[in-house]
Nucleic acid binder design. Sequence first.
DNA 1: TAATTTAGCACAAACGTTTGATATCAATAT
DNA 2: ATATTGATATCAAACGTTTGTGCTAAATTA
Lengths: 340, 340
Amino acid sequence: MIKKPITIKEIAKKLNLSISTVSRALHGHPSISLSTQQKVKLMAKEMEYEPNQTAIFFQKGRTYTIGVILPELAEAFFASAISAIEDIAYKKNYTVLLAQSHDEEGREKQLVEKMKNHRIDGLLVSVAKTTSNFDHFELLRKHQIPVVFFDRIPPIKNIHYVACNIETGSIEAVNYLLKRGHRSIGLINGPNTLVASGQRKEGYIKALYKNRLKYDPTLIVDCDLTEAGTKTALETLLNHKRKPTAIVTFNDYVSAFAIKSLRRFNLNTDQEIEFVSYANSSIIGFMEHPPVASVEQFPTIQGQKAIDTLLDLLNSDVNEETQGYYKTIIESQLIETHKD
Amino acid sequence: MIKKPITIKEIAKKLNLSISTVSRALHGHPSISLSTQQKVKLMAKEMEYEPNQTAIFFQKGRTYTIGVILPELAEAFFASAISAIEDIAYKKNYTVLLAQSHDEEGREKQLVEKMKNHRIDGLLVSVAKTTSNFDHFELLRKHQIPVVFFDRIPPIKNIHYVACNIETGSIEAVNYLLKRGHRSIGLINGPNTLVASGQRKEGYIKALYKNRLKYDPTLIVDCDLTEAGTKTALETLLNHKRKPTAIVTFNDYVSAFAIKSLRRFNLNTDQEIEFVSYANSSIIGFMEHPPVASVEQFPTIQGQKAIDTLLDLLNSDVNEETQGYYKTIIESQLIETHKD
DNA sequence: TAATTTAGCACAAACGTTTGATATCAATAT
DNA sequence: ATATTGATATCAAACGTTTGTGCTAAATTA
């Protein structure tokens, strides 16, 4: 037996009321008597009435839907973020339209367009690595659709964003290693095309300067984040005239590769090399020899703050110019690996 | 400068045409002359016309949106699955409405309701662990909204589903270890409330029987999948009178915990214990001493098949009764760990 | 009692699009 | 010359809901 969705029209007919009365009754409008309100609500329940959201969306011009565009859903960082976002959206009765850009500018652009046409109320974006032109986001502004960027934010003015300050974490990381007595600290960094690489490097250098230590650029080695690349980078550092006793790596995966490689082929190292990395991902818990610490970047908190400010934006009808822009910076934090 | 979305009405006025003509022109309807079609299309582009999808959704009763309900977005398996699903949805011009149940039946129920009201065209679900009543899915059937279950499928008749046959992988795993000369093989399994645990156990037992080996139930130890639980389970096996030389574990994480624990406190084991696990997750690539093999469950393929069959369902207007139900089984597959 | 307020409801427009039915006009066929 | 066809475009209804305005009768006030 197939059920056609029933409408307020049919409720109206059944109760000999007008459509508008039914509508208002269901919303508890004061100009409808309590008795009819109850009658209507009862009948609605009886007939298993469910409002047609598409009609409401259309009518109201709002969808209570927020778009989320992420570079890569399968990446742990973004998976955590979207999970946190969805949780809050659910709580606030919003719905999440999800899409991934795969770090492609073209796809990102198309997705923005698509979401605009879907009449999302607002958008959350972590921008693609390759994106160099940001007009598609400007377009949304013209259509009064607020956008909040998070984690990967574009280098443009007048935007709302939530980001993580990696530099402080970077400084903490180096300070930590210095306190542990290391004097030659290497850095296996990511490709220098990434903003994230620059941030790590900046912090690394600043920390050394602050401690009045001389900064040796050759102790920084870029790598492509693959296992092979990591190995090569590691070997470069091991052959350095001031062979580092500690190494900061771009992220936990690079640390894992480096440690794995180091231990397999260099087990007879009398002096252990200590590692510090970034992300504090769950992988650390599974490692036999984890880095001594990792810089947490709080994906869930970033996601939460991002959707919080978006919802704020949606529920204050003041326009942007007068109220300025939300800029939230989360401080990254060095987390020591739990010794078990 | 704020832009109001412009409508076909305004295009019509500007060209002195009727609304319907503009609509048909934009769709290339044959009863509109090519010359006017071009004029209209040109003007549409000029005025930066974008169709109001909410109006179209409402009008057509279809949203080209598919709902996806997963237990936990932050879990690697589901993150891969949703990634694959989104990719295909994007290609086929569908949009993904995402939500997570957190393995709670109540939340799952609410989400289904919400998605129904959003008028999704179809739904993809991996059901929550706690769900025991499946009426909310039945409801969708009545509303002609097709549902395809994947990975975690409910124990009810007449449904479309995509699942992974773990038993064959389980058998492969044990066979593999037997071939490698092991005669005492342990199993660190998950909680027996999980279907997944049962499947692993079944395969384990069948493999032994097929090889005419006696099955010792005490070589199977359940654990809660935590690090501590794994350690306890491992110790139980190590103290077994027929101490296993190989262990199958519920998943890669359990393997990681076990291996870590084993190597830390038992480094002087002359004879190595070999591990085989499930999931073949990326963590294996980062392990210093990975399991020798892992049973791949193909999250992306499952996701792909699931959305493929859903789209099939959506685009064939034959009703379910006549065409039967799609039941796709993916064979799991033992993947040997790449030696590097 | 007549005038005015108030409560309770109905009417109808509007949101933007699609689509079946219809109209117009010219070209062709009878 | 009339009927038929075909090409092209218009009209108007419909999708389900919200909401400003208008209406009626009862209740209140003067």
